[in-house]
Design a protein around this nucleic acid. Structure first.
Length: 151
DNA sequence: AAGAAGATTCGCT
DNA sequence: GCGAATCTTCTTA
């Protein structure tokens, strides 16, 4: 709350309604003319909060991602919010999807142990950047952002 | 009803 | 390393 960088900051609107769904729902929006961003609502229904998925490590469907992204460089497939959405074929149709239910897109439980988790200031936005709300796995090459922020 | 801004990416110089 | 491409949605007159 009080986060001027959040889309839910000014209240519920038709397009950001997914952020106000119960935790685990997808919130997809479009920006800069050609990029989708994938967010996941993170609070109870009615609160209006979520997190942006900035990067992930592709484990399956590499060939599909390569086709959708038009590149064979694995590191470029999903490192970055816009790239990630493109690699997964994210569109507005997935906005509001329950990621805890079976469907075209869902979240699974991590199978392998992850490395230590790092926290840093947020990046890629112009407001409230000092708040340390960026979480990532230390040493994972698929974490997006400047290397200086991923010690 | 129109204007402005936006959690970016890609391609050149 | 910097600037352009491109569209959806909210805000204000």
């Amino acid at each position: 709350m009080g986060d001027a960088a959040a889309h839910s900051f000014r209240g519920l609107t038709p397009s950001n309604r997914s952020l106000f769904l119960d935790h685990g729902h997808a919130y997809v929006y479009f920006t800069y003319g050609n990029h989708f961003m994938l967010n996941v609502s993170s609070e109870r229904a009615g609160v209006g909060a979520g997190i942006l998925i900035r990067g992930l490590e592709p484990l399956e469907g590499l060939s599909t991602m390569e086709r959708l992204r038009g590149t064979h460089r694995v590191l470029d497939l999903t490192r970055g919010p816009g790239r990630l959405a493109a690699a997964l074929g994210i569109t507005k149709k997935l906005d509001g999807t329950d990621l805890c239910a079976a469907g075209p897109l869902w979240l699974g439980t991590a199978v392998r142990e992850t490395g230590s988790i790092g926290i840093s200031v947020r990046i890629g936005i112009t407001k409230e950047t000092h708040r340390e709300l960026r979480f990532y796995e230390r040493g994972n090459l698929f974490v997006s952002g400047p290397k200086s922020l991923s010690p």
